[in-house]
Amino acid sequence: MGKLKRILLVDDSPRDLELAIDALEAHHLANEIVTLRDGVEALDYLYCRGPFAGRNDGPPAVVLLDLKMPRLDGLEVLKQIKSDPFLKAIPIVIMTSSREEQDLVQSYENGVNAYVVKPVEFHQFVDAVRQLGTFWAVLNETPGSKQV
């Protein structure tokens, strides 16, 4: 395994992005973190189209996806990824402020790999991110990664 795969972080809130990156960096994760601001950008990235046309660095190790986003929300992105035979192997983690049960149920119905409610307390948040990052990005090898 050569270069570490990227972690895709999709959130419309720049503060959440900053907090997340801080949390990830605090644990010295070596993976490159790509931040995207909404669902459309996320799909463009995954399909290597639009601004990401010609990208050839393969699929990310994991996608951390916020639910509530402009244009295309996280649930839509999740449905699209999990219904695409080439993308569905990518682990998707929903990270959201919502404690609503319906969000959780729908996410699992659509094949989410993990669902994390962002805690208010920062160190809890940092703990959660760190665990996710290490689990998905470092330890896990997706079936897709072997093809690249």
């Binding site: 809130s13 503060r15 959440d16 907090l19 801080d22 639910l67 509530k68 959201t96 402020s97 919502s98 404690r99 609503e100 962002k118 805690p119 208010v120 307390e121 920062f122 160190h123 948040f125």
Partner: peptide, 21 residues
């Protein structure tokens, strides 16, 4: 209530997060 749950907690988290940072 969905909005409350989602949108009120986000700023609180931010407050807490930035205070910590």
């Amino acid at each position: 209530s969905y909005s409350v749950s989602h949108d009120l907690r986000a700023p609180l988290r931010h407050v807490h997060g930035y205070v910590q940072m």
